[in-house]
Write a protein that binds this DNA or RNA. Structure first.
Length: 127
RNA sequence: GUAGCAGGCCGCUCUAUCGUUCUGAUUUGAUCAGAGAGGAAAGUCCGGACACCAUAGGAUAUCAUAGCGGUUAACGACCGUCGGUUCGCUUUCGCGAAAGCGAGAUCGAAUUAGGACCAGUGCAACAGAAAGGAUGUACAGGUAAUGCUGUAGUGAAAUCAGGUAAACUCUAUGUGGUGAAAUGUCGCGUAAAUCAGAGCUUGAGUGUGAUCCGCACGAUUCUGAAGGGUAGGCAGUUCGAGACCGUGAGUAAUUGCGGUUCUAGAUAAAUGAUAGAGGUUCUCGUUAUUACGGGAAUACAGGAUCCGGCUUAUAGGCCUGCUUUUUUA
RNA sequence: UGUCCCAUGGUGUAAUGGUAACACUACGGUUUUUGGUACCGUCAUUCAAGGUUCGAGUCCUUGUGGGACAA
């Protein structure tokens, strides 16, 4: 089992992201919010990370948080639920004006993934 | 040695594991190798390069600059110099019993958006008789007579070719506009459709954005309404007014010549995580010092077309010069 | 990435370079048996720092914060 996070696992394209925000569901734990949308067809999970300028003004701090999020997801990606006929589009959003550390981010992400796994995949998928 | 001021420079290092963007190899499963943020990358306050619009032409307006000389691709930047202002040392003169006060000069430091108010217009609160076509209080002087003259008094400024242009303005010089979402090209897709108005060579309008002229285009046209489609790839894009070293010119900014070197290129956007070791600074304890051990801190901040400046943020450290004070010889 | 605008009591707005004004709110007081109304008073480092000027909310420069726009 490898812990890579290359370009093939990133969510790209303006259209895909717009539909994710328009139709996606969300889970929130503390300062971390996950937007997710199940998609038809077997593929790798596509993920992306966002930190609004509203909470952290400096580019250095926003980059720092995104790097921590990316690192946490890289190490926990295999806990995500896997299905044969669908995959997820994901967007992690950090919503706080405090700079977190790695441990804190990891705990939040673990809780969210656990909650996502519990949910039945009965809701409809988007092609 | 201590403290302060000014200028310049550096701005944490190494190892292991797991990852990340680009490039190159081996080759289609991936693996290996190399490279990978700053002095401000920031603010966007100026100036350019580059691209397009007539390789942008004339006039006016607008805006900017403002002693003199130089540097530069260019500038509102930089260098030199003259002047102004402030401060300090020394010193001269005047007043005074002294303390001290006032005025000037040399030297040093800091600072300075520094053309023109004998072209015109405007402005000056309060105080004051009077604030720009002047007017007149008290005392003294003077006259044939009169604010005619001086002093006092008010004020930032009181007759002085007055002050004020970071007041309008004038003078000189410069200034076309837009801005990588520029621009070119490939691909996908739609509606050369509908409605209303204008116009069809006697000209509606368009061509980049202050106006007019001029120039070019112009009927398969132009404007508006409602609506439909796309919003992807590549080039531009990183070799350049480049960086470093030596040497010549110049007071300096800067520049000539020679040599060496290639140093980010992402696009929901690459530098991170974890563990360990070591620097540096501060601090506590043990110790006669050296030293040893514990704890804390290690800044400001992240490229997005690229350069030259300016401004702002910055833990800690180094170098140079000047001043203050202390100790030793 | 680029362009533009704004900032004055708690709130909304004024002010030609010359004592920062008005309305509402809040607080205190007077009137009233009490409350309301009415009247009186209080509440400003004009976003910050420099500069020009005798004098700056106003003019100039640089920052800070907020907002808008560009296919």
């Amino acid at each position: 089992m490898r812990f890579t996070l290359g370009k093939d696992k990133k969510l790209k394209g303006k259209k895909a992201i717009e539909t994710l925000f328009a139709q996606g569901l969300s889970i929130r734990k503390g300062a971390l919010r996950l937007k997710y949308l199940p998609i038809d067809g077997k593929d790798l999970h596509k993920t992306s990370f966002s930190v609004p300028k509203r909470f952290l003004k400096l580019a250095v701090h926003r980059n720092r948080v995104k790097r921590l999020l990316r690192e946490s997801y890289r190490l926990q990606q295999h806990h995500m639920p896997v299905s044969d006929n669908s995959h997820y589009h994901l967007m992690w959003v950090y919503q706080s004006n405090k700079l977190p550390d790695q441990e804190h981010i990891t705990q939040l992400m673990q809780a969210i993934i656990k909650q996502l796994s519990k949910k039945p995949e009965s809701h409809k998928t988007v092609s």
